[in-house]
Deep mutational scan, measured.
Amino acid sequence: TETREFDNEEEARKEAERLRRKGQDVQIRKKGNRWELRRT
């Protein structure tokens, strides 16, 4: 599992969408005042 953190939700969602188009399974969750993007 690979995780990346983003400062805002929009960036996290854009990156998640990009990875999903490549066929990756991605989850986003709020972590304090940041957003965590998890690739499984």
Rank of each mutant, 00 (worst) to 15 (best):
E2I: 13
E9V: 09
E5V: 14
G23Y: 04
N33V: 04
A16E: 04
D7F: 06
D7T: 07
E10Y: 11
T1V: 13
E5L: 15
K22Y: 10
R34D: 05
A16H: 04
I28E: 00
F6Y: 10
R20D: 00
E11N: 06
G23H: 04
E5Y: 15
E5Q: 09
E5P: 03
R34Y: 08
T40S: 10
L19Q: 04
R34A: 06
G23S: 02
G32W: 00
R18Q: 08
N8W: 03
R4N: 07
K30I: 04
F6K: 00
L19K: 00
G23K: 03
E10L: 09
L19V: 02
E15N: 03
E9P: 06
A16K: 04
R29G: 05
K30G: 03
N8T: 15
D25L: 13
T40K: 09
K30H: 04
E10G: 07
E2N: 10
E17Q: 10
E36S: 01
A16V: 06
V26I: 08
E5A: 08
R18E: 08
E5T: 13
I28L: 10
Q24D: 09
I28A: 03
G32N: 06
R38E: 12
T3Y: 13
E5R: 07
F6R: 01
A12K: 00
D25P: 09
E9N: 02
R13L: 14
R29A: 11
I28V: 13
F6I: 01
R18I: 11
V26L: 04
V26P: 02
D7Y: 07
E9G: 03
R21S: 11
A12F: 00
N33Q: 05
K30F: 05
R39E: 14
Q24H: 14
E17P: 01
N33W: 03
T40R: 12
E36K: 02
L19R: 03
E36V: 12
T3R: 10
T1Y: 15
K22H: 11
R39D: 13
E2K: 10
E10I: 09
W35V: 00
R18V: 09
R21V: 07
T3D: 07
R29Q: 11
N33D: 14
T40Q: 10
E11D: 14
N8Q: 05
E2Q: 11
E2V: 13
